[in-house]
């Protein structure tokens, strides 16, 4: 047991500092990916709800495809395809030579685009769940579109969407482990390196699982807190 703690501790033989840093990387790439996904989610939900047939079709294709293929493939595609596309775009702009994306950006975009497909569905459902009466009332008092979005749709929709978004966040956090295949040193990659170099795979993978559990638990508590906050005045009624 003591041997185990010196192994994952912060001593000279310990992997503690690397694991802490890697956990931070996992957290930051997940946050970046989730934010990217929110941008895609808002755009997708908007296209599905109020776009023309072309936009709606595109949004449908986006959610169908991204939810139908393994995330691992999406990461491979962004990893290898992303730089080829960038290079071609760069040449178009008169830039000579190759352009690349690092593991962080690849992970952020790949996981972000996938989570965007799920966020699209969550946000669309949330919008549809806003009581029509409230929107009609807002129209009746002469609110403009922007004001209505800010005062009614966004706060009301967010409250309804929060549990769904919480689930997508958990998913993003766990999928971020897949980015390890690009060689970016996040939590799983660091665990993998440590397991290979010490030949103690069980100790390290179990530690990895525990660290991920810690992350998902803490963040899910945060989401639950936010849910409770947004529902405060509803309970008071």
């Amino acid at each position: 047991m003591q041997a185990y703690f010196s192994l994952i501790g912060f001593g000279p033989q310990g992997w503690g500092a690397q694991l802490a840093w890697a956990t931070l990387m996992t957290l930051s790439v997940s946050v970046a990916a989730f934010a990217t996904g929110t941008v895609f989610g808002v755009a997708g939900a908007w296209a599905k709800l109020s776009g023309g047939p072309v936009l709606r079709g595109l949004a449908d294709a986006y959610t169908t495809v991204l939810r139908g293929i393994p995330d691992l493939l999406v990461i491979y595609l962004f990893y290898f395809g992303g730089s080829a596309l960038l290079t071609r775009l760069g040449t178009l702009m008169g830039h000579d030579g190759f352009l690349g994306l690092n593991g962080f950006v690849v992970g952020m975009l790949a996981i972000g685009v996938v989570s965007g497909a799920y966020q699209t569905e969550v946000m669309r459902a949330a919008y549809l769940a806003i009581p029509r009466g409230e929107i009609e009332a807002a129209r009746a008092v002469g609110m403009g579109r922007a004001l209505m979005l800010r005062r009614i749709v966004a706060p009301r929709g967010l409250r309804i969407a929060l549990p769904g978004l919480g689930n997508v966040w958990q998913q993003v956090l766990k999928e971020s482990a897949l980015i390890s295949v690009t060689g970016m040193v996040e939590l799983l990659r660091q665990i993998h390196i440590a397991a290979g170099s010490t030949r103690l795979p069980f100790d390290f993978y179990a530690t990895g699982a525990a660290l991920f559990l810690l992350l998902t638990t803490i963040t899910s508590l945060l989401f639950r807190g936010a849910e409770r906050r947004t529902q405060r005045h509803e309970r008071a009624r």
Binding site: A177, S180, R199, P201, Y205, G208
Partner: peptide, 17 residues
């Protein structure tokens, strides 16, 4: 609460230890 990939590694490489 933990990624499937970690579970796979834990069972595959971990148990073999």
């Amino acid at each position: 609460g933990s990624p499937l990939l970690v579970q796979i590694f834990l069972i595959y490489y971990g148990l073999g230890q």
